[in-house]
Amino acid sequence: MNCPEFTKAYNKYDGTINELELDEHFLHDRAVRESGHDTSYRLENVAAKLSTIDLNSLLYKYETDVARTIEIHFGDRLAIPHELCVGVQGITPNQVQTSTVWDRKAKN
């Protein structure tokens, strides 16, 4: 089986090809790329199972930055436009968010 045939068979998800090692590799690879970490080998085969301090620190910083932006630049009332609500659970178009929501996320 050549590479394009393998890719097609692997991506069918119908059991045509069942490669648990490859599944595990892709799981960790996606985790390291989504986290923003470098793609060096330090997180290979462990990235999906980690909750690293640097990622948590970045999330905290983003959430507090969003809170301050809403508070200072939007008078602590930001109506979320429809186009930003697509595919996001729990948010409806024109729903108003305040800095408190984002402060709470940062605290958690």
Rank of each mutant, 00 (worst) to 15 (best):
T92V: 15
C3H: 02
S35I: 07
T69F: 11
D76I: 00
M1E: 10
T98G: 13
T69K: 14
H73P: 00
T16I: 08
H73C: 13
N45K: 15
S51T: 06
G75Q: 01
V88C: 08
L84S: 07
K12E: 10
P4C: 01
T52N: 02
S57Y: 00
N11Q: 08
H37N: 12
Q89I: 01
K49L: 11
I53Y: 05
T98Q: 02
A67H: 02
T69L: 14
V32N: 14
E24I: 09
P81R: 05
V66M: 15
Q97I: 15
C85K: 07
A31D: 10
A31I: 12
H73Y: 07
E44W: 05
V101T: 12
S40I: 05
A79K: 09
E44R: 15
L55D: 00
T98E: 09
E21T: 11
H28V: 13
G75K: 00
V86A: 09
E44Y: 10
I17G: 05
G90A: 05
D54S: 13
F6S: 01
S40T: 14
K8L: 10
E5F: 04
H25N: 02
Y10L: 13
D54Q: 11
A48C: 08
N2H: 03
K105V: 10
D103Q: 14
H28T: 09
L20M: 11
E83L: 15
V86D: 04
C3S: 06
E5G: 07
L59R: 08
P81E: 03
N18K: 15
E19A: 15
T100K: 15
V46Q: 09
T16G: 05
R68H: 07
P4T: 03
F26Q: 06
T98P: 04
S40V: 05
Y60V: 00
E19D: 15
N56R: 14
E34M: 12
E71M: 10
D76M: 01
N56K: 13
I17V: 15
S99R: 09
T39Y: 08
D23W: 06
E44Q: 13
I91D: 00
N94G: 00
G15A: 05
T100R: 14
S51D: 09
K12I: 01
V96F: 03
L58G: 00
G87E: 03
A47E: 05
A48Y: 06
S40K: 14
T39A: 12
E21C: 11
E44P: 00
K105L: 15
E34C: 11
N108W: 03
Y60T: 06
P81S: 05
L59N: 03
K107E: 13
Y62W: 07
Y10C: 04
